[in-house]
Simulated assay, not measured.
Amino acid sequence: MQEEIQKVFDRMCDPKESEAYHFADKLGGMADEEVKEKLIELVKGDNWEIAYLACRALSKTPFQEEALDVIFETIFDKKNKSVQGAFVQILEEFDLSSRFVDVFRVYLFGNFKASTLAKDYLDGVEFDITPRTIRKAEKHWNHYLHNPEDEGSLILKKSEVEPMLQEMKELFS
């Protein structure tokens, strides 16, 4: 079995492989603890294309929460700033309902593509919201307010975020 798994890994990681997505999906279906660890290692690696495929494989496993921790870590890693959007895009394969604060942070601090995709998730995903979630989001919002990237984006985000936070607060009052 290990030999077969290694062959699937090799095919997924082969830059000439036209069916790499197929092998990523297959690997996700075969994932045990050892495979999960190797996929997580690939997500943290230097080749973003292989990392993306590893994220896809992880989305097909029962290890989604661990995978999301690593993916959000990868999104915020400075070395991935130019490819953040790809990692945010793969999030559509995961259950994000308990990840409001992480998605909110991507919206605030991600590059243009990442921020735009995160906004789509904020608008479309049913998140599990608690008073603690709101406090954490407000903490990141206050950090953003004191460290905006540019005034134009600050005005736009302010017009979107403040009503959103207010609406969430009203759920608990």
Rank of each mutant, 00 (worst) to 15 (best):
L42T: 06
E92G: 07
A114M: 05
S97R: 15
I71F: 05
S82T: 13
F72M: 02
V70L: 03
F100K: 01
P62R: 13
Q64I: 11
Q64K: 15
S97C: 06
N47Y: 09
G85S: 08
E37W: 07
A114V: 05
D69W: 06
G110S: 08
T61V: 14
F87S: 02
E49C: 06
L122R: 08
I75Q: 04
I71N: 03
E49Q: 15
V88P: 02
Q89S: 15
I90K: 03
K36D: 00
F100E: 02
L117A: 14
F109C: 04
R99M: 12
L108V: 01
S98D: 13
L42D: 01
N111G: 15
K60D: 06
L96Q: 04
V35T: 04
G110L: 04
D46F: 12
K78M: 08
R105D: 01
N80C: 05
A54M: 01
W48E: 04
A67V: 01
E37Y: 06
E126M: 14
K36A: 07
C55I: 04
E34D: 10
E65K: 10
E41N: 11
T61L: 09
T74V: 11
L58I: 00
I40T: 05
V106T: 02
L117G: 10
K79D: 08
I71D: 03
V35I: 14
D95M: 04
L108E: 02
T61S: 14
V103L: 06
L58H: 03
R105N: 12
I75D: 03
F104T: 02
S97W: 08
T61D: 09
K44C: 05
E49I: 04
L117W: 15
V106E: 10
L108Y: 09
K119I: 12
S59W: 02
I71V: 10
Y52G: 02
A57L: 06
K119V: 09
Y52P: 06
L117N: 12
I50M: 08
Y121H: 06
F87P: 00
I75P: 01
D77I: 00
A57F: 00
V35A: 01
R56L: 10
D46H: 14
D77G: 00
E41W: 07
F127Q: 10
